[in-house]
């Protein structure tokens, strides 16, 4: 089941809001597609980005995936545990494998993202 407590993007990322801060990660689907993740590069805390900017990379043994920021804002935290142990992206994509936290410039950007139902349909097709 796809958790309905957050929003999703076409790029297989999730955003979970708490106040005006969104926690961002990649979905189980994306982690599975990538295969064993062995390297994660994340932006500096304090950096500001616009929606759609490339803010990092996730690499498996065979593949490289860009990490797109699904919402505009300032990076307020990164998950050091994932940097030190990239396999968390495979084992805990939706929880402890979160990647970064963003203070949103425009919280309404989240409303336009997909809900769990819509994302479920995307990954089924």
């Amino acid at each position: 089941m796809i958790p309905d407590d957050r929003k999703y993007t076409q790029e297989h990322e999730w955003v979970q809001m708490e106040g005006d801060v969104g926690t961002i990660g990649v979905t189980d689907f994306a982690a599975n597609e990538l295969g064993d993740v062995v390297f994660v590069e994340l932006p500096e805390v304090g950096a500001e980005f616009s929606q759609g900017d490339t803010v990092g990379t996730i690499e498996s043994v065979k593949a490289v995936a860009d990490l797109f920021l699904p919402v505009s804002g300032e990076i307020v935290a990164i998950n050091e545990a994932v940097v030190d142990g990239p396999e968390l992206v495979n084992t805990e994509a939706m929880d402890d494998g979160w990647l970064l936290k963003v203070k949103l410039t425009d919280p309404s950007e989240v409303d336009a993202l997909m809900d769990a139902d819509a994302y479920g349909k995307l990954t089924e097709s």
């Binding site: 295969g35 064993d36 062995v38 498996s60 043994v61 065979k62 495979n90």
Partner: peptide, 8 residues
């Protein structure tokens, strides 16, 4: 087959 259980 490119992988089964996972490359690692």
């Amino acid at each position: 087959p490119v992988q089964y259980a996972g490359v690692l």
